[in-house]
Simulated assay, not measured.
Amino acid sequence: MLRTPVDGTRLRILTLLREQEAADGLTAEAVAARLGLSRPAALTHLRLLTALGLLRTGRCAGRVRYRRDEARIAEVTRLFEKGW
C-alpha cells in the first residue's frame, strides 16, 4: 500500500504535504513540480492516497488541492505499529 515499489513516491508526497502544505493545500501541479514528477504520475499517486483516506481534497480558486488527513494517518500508523 504505502511501502510498495514506485521508489517511495507516496511517502515523499506525504512528507512534502507535511512540510510544505499551505493552509489551503497543494495542487497536483505543485506536487509534481516539487518532486520532479509528471502531472499524470502525481495525480495517480494523489488519487490513490485520497482513496486510502490519507489525503483530503478541497477547492481553492477553482483548483483541486490536496491536504493530509492527520487523524487518518495517525490511525494507519497505529495499525502498522501494532503489527497489522
Rank of each mutant, 00 (worst) to 15 (best):
Glu81Gln: 13
Arg67Thr: 15
Val31Asp: 00
Thr50Ile: 04
Phe80Pro: 03
Leu16Lys: 11
Gly53Ala: 04
Trp84Glu: 15
Ala74Glu: 00
Thr27Leu: 01
Pro5Ile: 14
His45Met: 02
Arg39Thr: 13
Gly25Ile: 05
Ala28Gln: 06
Ala23Glu: 08
Gly53Tyr: 11
Leu26Tyr: 03
Thr15Met: 10
Leu17Gln: 01
Val76Gln: 11
Ala41Met: 07
Ala22Asn: 11
Arg18Glu: 06
Pro40Thr: 11
Glu29Val: 12
Leu11Asp: 11
Val31Tyr: 00
Leu46Ser: 07
Ala74Val: 08
Val31Gly: 03
Ser38Arg: 09
Pro5Trp: 12
Arg34Thr: 14
Leu46Cys: 09
Cys60Pro: 06
Glu70Gln: 07
Arg78Gly: 15
Leu2Cys: 12
Arg47Cys: 03
Ser38Asn: 03
Thr57Lys: 07
Ala71Trp: 00
Gly58Trp: 02
Glu81Leu: 12
Tyr66Ser: 14
Thr57His: 08
Arg56Val: 01
Arg56Gln: 09
Thr15Asp: 06
Ala71Thr: 04
Pro40Gly: 12
Arg47Tyr: 02
Leu55Phe: 00
Leu55Thr: 05
Leu2Asp: 09
Leu79Trp: 12
Leu17Pro: 11
Leu26Cys: 06
Val6Ser: 14
Arg72Trp: 03
Thr77Asn: 05
Leu2Arg: 13
Glu19Ile: 00
Met1Tyr: 05
Ala32Glu: 02
Glu21Trp: 01
Cys60Trp: 08
Ile73Met: 13
Gly62Trp: 12
Leu16Asn: 10
Trp84Gly: 15
Trp84Cys: 14
Trp84Tyr: 15
Ala41Ile: 00
Leu14Pro: 14
Arg34Val: 03
Arg72Glu: 14
Thr44Val: 09
